[in-house]
Write a protein that binds this DNA or RNA. Structure first.
Lengths: 127, 127
DNA sequence: TCCATAGTTCGTAAAATACGAACTATGGAA
DNA sequence: TTCCATAGTTCGTATTTTACGAACTATGGA
């Protein structure tokens, strides 16, 4: 098993962060993790991401988050404990993650409103 | 020629914005455009992005920015005038774009510092 | 030693991206 | 009107990235 890669704080890039968080599954994972306040295992997120996502795919998503510098993963017995690196990133890119998380919440709330308005799976046609 | 697609403000997603700005060429274009204060043509950015980038590729980048809702493009005679939609987006996702642009500037400044420190094209080895 | 659990890696099919060639739309000159 | 130049788009294809099942690795416990 190859050792996990955690980039040094100075090698974390804005593009890497944005790319990592531009995927709905990953941003959901990250948001949940940021809100959790304590380290969480990978499998925890099988519940967060309600679709039954293959664990190989989930593993890749964690790798992407890790190599973008967003999270730190440490083996703890048979499982893997993940924590966000938001403190470090806040130092390097002040306000970036809070703004993304805030925007993410705005979007979640809007989605919830839309779902309440039109129950079945219909979408607005946007030319 | 198909009509240009500009998503309605309510259909602009955080993921779409992050994806669009997760490319170094696109974020450079967007940053320049946001700083310009007036509409700019596509070809303007051939200078901003110093690499000689093919115009088909540049066109695709503009399309990505446009369809993510970040910019608005209007034909003006023989050329295309582009403006950011930062006002609208600020309403929907307050603070998101300023934070990304700020982080981008931090990164540019760090790169400039590094380049001054080590003139030739050498990079830090980050395992 | 054997098994279960948690996650990684590999192989391959599907999707996204880059870029040259060909095309479209507009404006100006002959 | 016809022809040409400019600015940008679209198409075709090679390359890169991503998704996911199958096989593998690492740890803990019976």
């Amino acid at each position: 098993m190859k050792p996990l890669i955690h980039p040094d704080i100075d090698n974390i890039t804005v593009e890497g962060i944005l790319h990592a968080l531009s995927d709905p599954v990953r941003v959901a994972i990250y948001a949940d993790m940021a809100g959790a306040g304590c380290a969480q295992t990978c499998s925890t997120f099988l519940q967060v991401v309600d679709r039954s996502i293959p664990k190989s795919t989930l593993s890749q998503h964690f790798r992407t988050l890790r190599e973008a510098g967003l999270i730190r993963s440490e083996r703890q017995g048979v499982e893997m404990l993940n924590t966000t690196r938001c403190g470090e990133i806040e130092q390097r890119f002040p306000g970036l993650l809070p703004a993304i998380m805030s925007a993410h919440r705005v979007q979640l709330m809007q989605k919830a409103r839309m779902a309440r308005r039109k129950p079945a799976g219909s979408r607005t046609s946007t030319g």
